[in-house]
Amino acid sequence: MNPAKQILHLLQHQFKLESKSPHVLAANVLYVVTIIFIIYRIFNEISPPAWVAVFWIVFMFTTINVTIHSYSKEQGKSILFYYSIMHPLALYISRTIFNFIVICISTLVVYLFMTIFLESPVTEHNMLLSTVALSSLAVSIIFSFTSAIAVHTQIKHTMMTLLSLPLIIPVVLIAVKLSLVSVGTLIDDGSATDYNILIGINLIMLGIGSFLFPYLWRS
């Protein structure tokens, strides 16, 4: 099989696995709704900067939750078979694409519920959307790598959080800055630079991740 086919095949496999256990999705949605409901009860009315802060904190923890779920499922023997016939890069890329899709969906759910409970102060939707897309991509690139490290340890979930959170800080910092522009709190000066840095982080992490993943996989 050529790499593109392998990636497609692995993606199909992952979505099939996902569809077999819809309760995981329900659990994640419930997780998001509970957090946002608590925030709504605490604040009632929320200022735009606080809205942005809450949005990205919920984003960080939801994405970690979602990614761990998707990984810990794949401990069976079937995946060992896949691991032995697929190219490691195809595995990494398909994992990243899958995480990206899942993270995007979960971020949409977060945004939806935050708009329902706490009125959305976003004025420039395109800007928030592009920020969310770029940072979701960066986060999924990083998480695909760190979760592959974390599954080999004894304390998977803790280790996943511990290894990933410090690494996504730069992404979240820029995302927060861009989101503050999108709600009109911050004046737009140098957003283009921020986008460039975000794209740069994506490229660097994807490059180093693809370079190192084969070493991780060969065990």
Partner: peptide
């Protein structure tokens, strides 16, 4: 293996920082 990989990956993530 894991720590060598993490240190290399983390160093790349530290470049923007």
């Amino acid at each position: 293996r894991l720590s060598a990989l993490y240190s290399l990956f983390a160093f790349a993530a530290m470049i923007p920082l």
